[in-house]
Amino acid sequence: MDKCIREIRDKAQELLETGQVEVVIGFTAGTLPGKSTPCFITRGEDCKLLVWDEGCKNNLANYLLKEKRKAAIIIKGCDSRSLVNLLTENQLSRDRVVILGAPCPLTEGCEGCQIKSPVIYDYLVSGKAGKTGEDDFHDVKTFARLSPQERKEYFYKEVSKCIRCYACRNACPACYCRECFVENNLPQWVGKSTQLADNLIFHLTRALHVAGRCVDCGACQRACPMGVDLRILNRKMLLEVKELYQFEAGLKEEQELPLNTYDPGDPEPFLAGGGEA
């Protein structure tokens, strides 16, 4: 990883000093053990403060949505998939961002992760990403074997922990609605209490809204202060989309999002009598 961070710092410095970008979005050392923190570097000499280590867990793609300056961003595999999505959905203009791709620094990768190296980049930092395997969704499949009652109980227990701080939503690069439905008050779709019903509506609606766009980066679950298992729900949606549309989000720039398009031949097993199950 030494070589990797040296390359990142050099490239970032070059980009800033040659005026190709105004800001570099990356990570610097955090204040807590095991936590690196997102940073916005504007001076070449500060690039030495960049780090690329175990603590670099946040999905930085998020920050490009608000960044008005021409930016370089240092990204790992899952961030790059989010970026592809944002480009596909016309939330970013490709010429405003310089992508510095780097292999995922997390040695203990996330379960199910297939893409540890960026799928899109302008510069690719050398270094080997950890091994990845085919995602067999065994967690989702194991969960599916539980009785409906057990699944419901598990899900209710998890969602009951939620304090509705919206860290999951705000950490998610796919959640960029100008006004989220939870904040809309004409009409008010969901109550502001943390009663189970309100929490359920929030999480289920969010899961459906990011279905087919979620890249399983895990940012939502990492951001959650209450340890709600959000990933099981997202991964269930991931599997559904994969099986129904043979689609995985954020892998290729030219992909069309299956739930943003309509094809008369789309499978519709969830409609009464529709499609083949």
Partner: peptide, 12 residues
């Protein structure tokens, strides 16, 4: 800039 504007800090 890095703040996500979530409610973790204030709720906790």
């Amino acid at each position: 800039r890095k703040c996500l504007n979530c409610g973790v800090c204030t709720y906790l």
